[in-house]
Lab assay of single mutants.
Amino acid sequence: LKTAGVNTTDKEMEVLHLRNVSFEDAGEYTCLAGNSIGLSHHSAWLTVLEALEERPAVMTSPLYLEIIIYCTGAFLISCMVGSVIVYKMKSGTKKSDFHSQMAVHKLAKSIPLRRQVTVSADSSASMNSGVLLVRPSRLSSSGTPMLAGVSEYELPEDPRWELPRDRLVLGKPLGEGCFGQVVLAEAIGLDKDKPNRVTKVAVKMLKSDATEKDLSDLISEMEMMKMIGKHKNIINLLGACTQDGPLYVIVEYASKGNLREYLQARRPPGLEYCYNPSHNPEEQLSSKDLVSCAYQVARGMEYLASKKCIHRDLAARNVLVTEDNVMKIADFGLARDIHHIDYYKKTTNGRLPVKWMAPEALFDRIYTHQSDVWSFGVLLWEIFTLGGSPYPGVPVEELFKLLKEGHRMDKPSNCTNELYMMMRDCWHAVPSQRPTFKQLVEDLDRIVALTSNQEYLDLSMPLDQYSPSFPDTRSSTCSSGEDSVFSHEPLPEEPCLPRHPAQLANGGLKRR
């Protein structure tokens, strides 16, 4: 031991701790050491302190810390799992109470259905409401065949629209698609105040090879029609059969078919879209009749726009005509997947739907009320060519290029400059510069009032120099000039209409 001194630092001082000593042992101690050379000694003081209470040693090893962490984590996880189980049990009790009230408590799974309603004014964004509309049932219905791709499903009954099956008599087919079909039928007692009145209706139903998605689409269309409500110039929902059998959606019946066929059937002799010497046209149409058709469609679209509904496929083929020549817009409630459109795929009647699409819908897939206005301009062109085919002879690839360059279709022969300028306004490259349906209704209403009933179509000018029955994407082998976009001569082996020498072909294109 070194004694503290003047020249001794703290580091040089050493402390020796002795245990089991008493206060009597306190004092100075000297350590002597010697050898043959000499003797040396050092002294140190022993200080006795009071004994401290002994405390248990605390484990601070890493293993002990890990044990604490794992135990704490396990406890927290157990609490979370327990909370989830309690929540599930409570929510399951509430669901079972709800389904027992709906009398569908025996169901095993559900079809996820979404009601898609486009509400954005400047995009294709949609509001999806995840309302459960249908659930599968283990119960089988008697007297009705089961669908191959869709098991029997039981829908919640809506008393406002439900019609008993025994009050619906199915008739002949009116048309069909890939998985759905429409048949003519007679409904008894659609009007609650007149329970014995028989009404001719159209009934939409699924085919035998339909899938769950097809069922989902049909129900979504029905729900959309319920929500949009009734208007004179749209196909209205009349009722539905949802209980004890396949789903039947009952809508208004339009006896004169779609507008395109309606116009073609009323072309003057010699100007029909397909040469037929025995062709006997229906009643002749006046200019006022054509303007009235456009006015009614505009009114229907104005109503749909007021309900925040974007059609996305407005064309003469999707406008139906009733016995009283009332125009009714159809298929506005269809669920369309705008992100998976095949631009080169034709519709069932051979038309390319892209020829009715606005550039922003075609290139950027942006659907708005103003893109519907563009389609309405093409529909106007169809009306005043009596069912002509837009951009005849123009392949899709060429159409993309022409639209980007600002080309537009030429004025039809039997169309006034004012109406043609309306078409051109609908085809404005900037969507915000196109008229609204409200403005179109006002303009067409004024034109109808000024147009005489006696103004019949000028038969001295050809209505349509093209054969719409030909595929639109076909290139002409005998077109006049180098560019078949601006002219389209008859093919030698097929009868077509004579070309008027002083008139540019109706399907020609102009640059805006």
Rank of each mutant, 00 (worst) to 15 (best):
D166N: 14
K172R: 10
L174P: 14
L174M: 06
E176V: 08
G177S: 07
G177V: 01
G177R: 06
F179C: 05
V183M: 14
A185S: 04
E186G: 02
I188M: 12
G189W: 03
L190Q: 06
K192N: 08
P195S: 08
P195R: 06
N196Y: 04
N196K: 10
V198A: 06
T199I: 13
A202D: 02
V203A: 07
K204M: 01
M205L: 10
I219S: 12
M222L: 14
E223D: 12
M224I: 15
M225I: 13
K226N: 06
K226M: 15
I228N: 15
K230N: 06
K232E: 14
N236I: 15
L237V: 09
T242R: 14
P246T: 09
Y248F: 10
Y248C: 12
V249G: 02
V249D: 00
V251M: 15
Y253F: 14
A254P: 00
K256T: 06
K256E: 08
K256R: 05
G257R: 07
E261A: 10
A265T: 11
R267K: 02
G270A: 15
L271V: 06
L271R: 06
Y273S: 04
H279R: 10
P281S: 12
Q284K: 11
L285V: 12
S286A: 08
D289V: 07
D289H: 10
V291M: 10
A294V: 02
Q296K: 08
R299L: 11
Y303C: 13
H311L: 00
H311Y: 00
H311P: 01
A316D: 02
A316P: 01
N318H: 00
N318T: 00
N318K: 00
V319A: 02
V319L: 01
L320Q: 00
T322K: 15
T322R: 06
D324Y: 10
D324E: 15
N325T: 10
N325I: 12
M327L: 10
A330T: 02
D331G: 03
F332L: 08
I338S: 06
I341S: 14
Y343C: 08
Y343F: 06
K346N: 15
N349D: 05
N349S: 05
L352V: 02
P353L: 04
K355T: 02
M357T: 12
M357L: 06
P359R: 03
E360K: 02
E360V: 05
F363I: 11
F363V: 05
T368A: 05
Q370H: 11
Q370R: 09
G377A: 11
G377W: 06
L379R: 02
W381L: 02
E382G: 03
G387S: 02
S389T: 06
P392T: 12
V394M: 03
P395A: 13
V396A: 05
E397D: 13
E397K: 05
E398V: 12
E398G: 13
L399I: 12
K401M: 07
G406V: 00
H407Y: 05
R408L: 01
R408P: 00
M409K: 01
K411Q: 10
P412S: 00
S413I: 09
T416N: 05
T416A: 12
E418K: 13
E418Q: 13
Y420H: 04
M423R: 01
D425A: 10
H428L: 05
V430G: 10
V430M: 08
Q433P: 00
Q439R: 11
D443A: 09
D443Y: 11
D445N: 12
I447F: 13
V448A: 10
A449S: 05
Y456S: 11
M461T: 11
M461R: 12
P462L: 11
D464E: 08
Q465K: 08
S467A: 07
S467T: 13
T473S: 09
R474W: 05
S476F: 10
C478R: 14
S480A: 14
E482V: 12
E482K: 15
S484A: 14
